[in-house]
Design a protein around this nucleic acid. Structure first.
Length: 268
DNA sequence: CAGAGGTATTTCCAATGCGT
DNA sequence: ACGCATTGGAAATACCTCTG
């Protein structure tokens, strides 16, 4: 989710495909349902609800099965903006402990009001300029901090991710299709340190381990749960179906579709 | 299914840290 | 100041992924 910092409404696709959240994002659901997966839990937000997606986290948007109709307002808070905001208003950093990637905001009337004011201005002013956008970004941040002062600890945390337990992190996040470099960053290591530590704990290289791990799960889903390759390959972090089939065949001796064909034959 | 372009892995080296 | 260990980064190579 590394867009330019526009607050956007509608369906700009970039937010929904990127799995690494590089800046804090405020999201307000105007219509429909938004569902996310953070590697462990699923988060659901309905129309009228609002929350923050935290930076330096991995998450994936889950498409709704039936209708894909939704509308939202997003405010993407770049680090530079937050720094100058903090400078300007001299706000103290507080401790913020919640660990989740998605943080629900305590209910307040101020936010729906704020959203409505946006609609009014955007509809009557047309394309708003930078000054206007800046003011609105500040306004929302002020509302959020007034509503929950502890958010200061969330927004004004400019540090890098801490060095964390590799095994735990990788087992929770291997389904995300992000580069090794990103994994290294998220576990608080340089690329070199990451690979060294990885070799020590898993006894293989990161790339090989990831493919192996994903294929094992694919194998389970296909053989045991009768799922289709085309339904699962994206969720497991594979980028394209042809490579998935190729890798699958290389590992298990037969392609995913052959498994399904065989099942059909035997069940008949 | 091949070939081009891109990414991961390996290896090596320089910089830094740390105890003696 | 010295040797040794650890770290991050660059370059070369191997491997993977995408496109037609």
């Amino acid at each position: 989710m590394n867009s330019t910092g526009e607050n956007s409404t509608g369906k700009s696709p970039d937010i929904w495909q990127e799995q690494f959240i590089s800046s804090h994002i405020f999201l307000y659901v105007k219509k429909g349902i938004l569902r996310f997966f953070d590697g462990d839990k699923t988060f659901t937000f309905k129309s009228g609800e609002y929350f923050i997606a935290r930076k330096n986290r991995l998450a994936r948007y889950i498409k709704e099965r039936r209708t894909n109709e939704f509308d939202y307002v997003a405010f993407i808070y770049e680090e530079d903006f937050i720094k100058s905001f903090q400078d300007k208003y001299k706000i103290q950093e507080k401790d913020f402990y919640a660990a989740d990637t998605f943080v629900r905001i305590k209910e307040t009337k101020a936010i729906p009001y704020f959203i409505r004011s946006l609609e009014f201005y955007y509809n009557s002013l047309g394309n708003p300029n930078d000054a206007f956008r800046n003011v609105k970004y500040e306004e929302l941040l002020i509302i959020l901090l007034q509503n929950q002062p502890e958010f200061a600890g969330l927004f004004f945390d400019f540090g890098f991710p801490q060095k964390i337990d590799l095994e735990k992190f990788m087992n929770g996040n291997y389904r995300f299709n992000v580069s090794i470099e990103r994994f290294a960053f998220l576990t608080g290591r340089s690329l070199s340190a990451f690979k060294r530590d990885f070799e020590n704990t898993f006894k293989t290289s990161p790339g090989k381990w990831l493919v192996q791990k994903r294929l094992e799960e694919a194998h389970f889903l296909i053989e045991e749960k009768n799922q289709k390759a085309s339904d699962i390959y994206l969720n497991l972090g594979f980028e394209n179906l042809s490579h998935f089939s190729y890798a699958y065949k290389k590992r298990f001796g037969h392609s995913p579709s052959e498994v399904i064909d065989n099942k059909k034959k035997t069940s008949r």
